[in-house]
Design a protein around this nucleic acid. Structure first.
Length: 274
DNA sequence: GATGCCCACCATGGTCCGGT
DNA sequence: ACCGGACCATGGTGGGCATC
C-alpha cells in the first residue's frame, strides 16, 4: 500500500482552522455520521490548495485530538506543562467544546442537549491560547458572547453559547481528558420526556443560536465574496497588463516587419532601363 | 398499513504499535 | 514529535419479521 504523504505545518494549520470553525464543530457534534462534514472540510482544503481526502482529514483530526489528550494527561500526571505544536489551537476548540458539549442546539440533538442541561457539570480547562497558529481573543468591548478566532485563512468571528465565558478568561478548573467518556449521541438516548420547561428553554436557545449562526454565516459569506472579488480584480488587472504588453509587442513587431519589407522591396525593385 | 422488535452491517472514535 | 495502519468497542442504520 502506498504511504500517504506527511502533513506539512501549513496544511495542518489550515485543517485546524477549518475544523475549528463553529459551524463545522456544530455539525460534527450534532451528528454521528460525520462523513459529509469531512467531505466539506476536504473540499475546503482542496479549494485552498491541499489535496486531502475526507478520510485523511478525519484521521488527522483524530490523531491531533489524541495527542492533545495524551499530553494533557501526561501534564496532569507529572505536573508538567509540555505542549505540542498545536496544543493551544486544539485547546481553544476542545476546551470550548467541553464546556458546551451538547449545547450546540439542533432539532436532532435536543435530547442530548437535555441531558447536558440536566447534568451539566463537565467543564474543561479553557487553557491559554496565545498562539501563532490560531489566535483566540475576546471582543469584550461590546459583545462578550463572541470569540474572535483569527484563522490563517480568513478572519471569522464565531459566536459562543450564551453565558459561556471564553476559554482564556474562564476560571474553570482543569479537567482530565475524556478518554472513553460516552459521547452524547443523538438517537440512542431516550427518555426525559417530562421536562417540558427544559425543552422549551432549549428550543428558545436553539432559535437564538440559529439567528446568530445565520448572521455569522452571512458575515463569512460576505467576506469570502469580498476576497474572491479582490482576487478576480487583481487577476483582471494582471491580464489587462499582459494583453497591453502583448499588443505593444505585436505593434512593434509589425512596425519592424513593415520597415524590413519596405527596405527589401526597395533593394529588389527592378532597375529602370537606362 | 402501522408499529415494534431483532439482528446484521458498518461508520466512528479510541487506543496501540511500529516506522520516520 | 509526528505519522499511518490495525484493531476493538460502541452505537446508528436499515431490512426482515411478527403483531395489531
Amino acid at each position: 500500500m502506498e504511504k500517504t504523504k506527511p502533513w506539512h505545518n501549513k496544511e495542518t494549520k489550515t485543517l485546524i482552522g477549518i475544523w475549528s470553525e463553529d459551524e463545522v464543530q456544530r455539525e460534527l457534534e450534532s451528528t454521528v455520521r460525520n462523513q459529509k462534514v469531512f467531505q466539506k472540510i476536504s473540499q475546503r482544503m482542496w479549494e485552498l490548495g491541499y489535496n486531502r481526502s475526507p478520510d485523511r482529514c478525519r484521521v488527522k483530526i483524530k490523531k491531533l485530538k489524541q495527542d492533545y489528550r495524551r499530553l494533557k494527561e501526561y501534564n496532569k500526571r507529572n505536573g508538567t506543562n509540555r505542549k505540542t505544536k498545536w496544543h493551544d489551537a486544539l485547546d481553544a476548540v476542545l476546551g470550548r467544546r467541553a464546556e458546551h458539549v451538547g449545547r450546540s442546539v439542533t432539532a436532532e440533538s435536543s435530547t442530548s442537549l437535555l441531558e447536558s442541561v440536566m447534568s451539566c457539570n463537565g467543564v474543561e480547562d479553557g487553557g491559554d491560547s496565545d498562539d501563532d497558529v490560531l489566535s483566540v481573543s475576546i471582543d469584550n468591548a461590546d459583545d462578550r458572547s463572541r470569540t474572535r478566532i483569527s484563522s490563517p485563512i480568513l478572519p471569522v468571528t464565531l459566536p459562543l453559547s450564551p453565558g459561556l465565558s471564553s476559554p482564556a478568561s474562564s476560571n474553570i478548573t482543569a479537567e482530565e481528558p475524556r478518554p472513553t467518556v460516552p459521547r452524547v449521541r443523538g438517537k440512542r438516548r431516550r427518555g426525559h420526556s417530562n421536562h417540558i420547561d427544559a425543552m422549551r428553554e432549549i428550543f428558545l436557545m436553539a432559535e437564538e443560536r440559529e439567528d446568530r449562526r445565520q448572521r455569522v454565516q452571512q458575515e463569512f459569506e460576505e467576506r469570502r465574496l469580498q476576497v474572491l472579488q479582490e482576487l478576480e480584480h487583481s487577476a483582471g488587472i494582471r491580464e489587462a497588463e499582459l494583453i497591453n504588453t502583448l499588443a505593444q509587442f505585436n505593434q512593434g513587431l509589425l512596425s519592424v516587419m513593415g520597415q524590413l519589407v519596405s527596405v527589401m522591396a526597395s533593394n529588389h525593385s527592378p532597375q529602370p532601363p537606362p
